[in-house]
């Protein structure tokens, strides 16, 4: 067992557990994007950063790939972490504004602006689909190609793959090519529609949640939290 401190709380964890798992065990929320249970941690999106160490040696690491260490001091929501997270979300919004997952994360983390050149990519290279295809479907039909600017995901030679069984797993796990965020103004990166309180479902009670395809819905969650607080 390895003993460490997370946000001041002492916790003992099995060797080999990640900081993310340890923090979740204690109930500290850490947002993740490329991480997915059942797939090997990949550390691509950097959203799960936490701060470890102390003083000038403190640094940010991705909690989904960092294993617990004896005596480690971890902060999951320090000012530095929050700042980094917001920046990462801003960058993600800059490349994929239509991803509902990213929009929801941005709303939930109070990202109010997007200061970068707006692009409209349809992939953030989180590698979920690649790992899904390889690890769960044992097909390896798609993979990373090229590098740097030209990195992309797809089949070799962009040809129809012979090993693909059309299981759809890749699309199922994709945080970007899922249901599109259909905000009205395509040039405005931050929607916040589901996150702000003017969501139709909240204003008009006749829309019960049966009619809502937004699941999980940030608006509902915020509303829930408010109700809990008020009680």
């Amino acid at each position: 067992m390895v003993t460490l401190h997370i946000n001041g709380l002492q916790v003992s964890q099995e060797k080999g557990t990640t900081l993310l798992e340890a923090a979740q065990f204690l109930g500290f929320p850490i947002p993740t994007l490329c991480h997915m249970e059942g797939l090997t941690p990949y550390g691509a999106c950097r959203l799960c950063v936490v701060e470890i160490g102390e003083g000038p040696r403190a640094r940010l690491v991705t909690s989904c790939t960092y294993p617990v260490e004896e005596g480690l001091k971890v902060r999951t929501a320090s000012r530095r972490v929050i700042k980094a997270r917001k920046m990462i979300l801003e960058l993600l919004l800059a490349s994929c504004p239509q991803s509902k997952t990213i929009q929801d994360l941005a709303s939930a983390h109070d990202v109010k602006q997007q200061r970068f050149k707006q692009e409209h990519e349809d992939c953030i290279l989180c590698g979920r689909c690649v790992r899904m295809c390889e690890e769960q479907m044992v097909a390896k039909a798609i993979g990373f190609r090229g590098r740097g600017q030209d990195r992309s995901i797809g089949t070799p030679f962009d040809e129809k793959s012979e090993v693909c069984r059309l299981c759809g797993g890749c699309m199922f796990v994709c945080p970007v090519c899922e249901l599109r965020c259909t905000y009205t103004d395509p040039d405005k990166a931050i929607c916040g529609g589901c996150g702000n309180h003017s969501a139709v479902c909240l204003e008009k009670p006749q829309f019960d949640d049966m009619m809502c395809y937004m699941d999980p819905c940030v608006a509902c969650e915020i509303e829930n939290i408010k109700e809990i607080k008020e009680d």
């Binding site: 390896k140 993979g143 990373f144 089949t155 070799p156």
Partner: peptide, 25 residues
């Protein structure tokens, strides 16, 4: 060439996806 890479995949038992990934990297 594509044929060469496919042959390598076949003979070594590696997936073409990996080989293509390395070749383009």
């Amino acid at each position: 060439s594509q044929e060469a890479m496919e042959l390598v995949a076949q003979e070594t038992g590696r997936s073409l996806t990996d080989i293509y990934g390395v070749a383009t990297f």
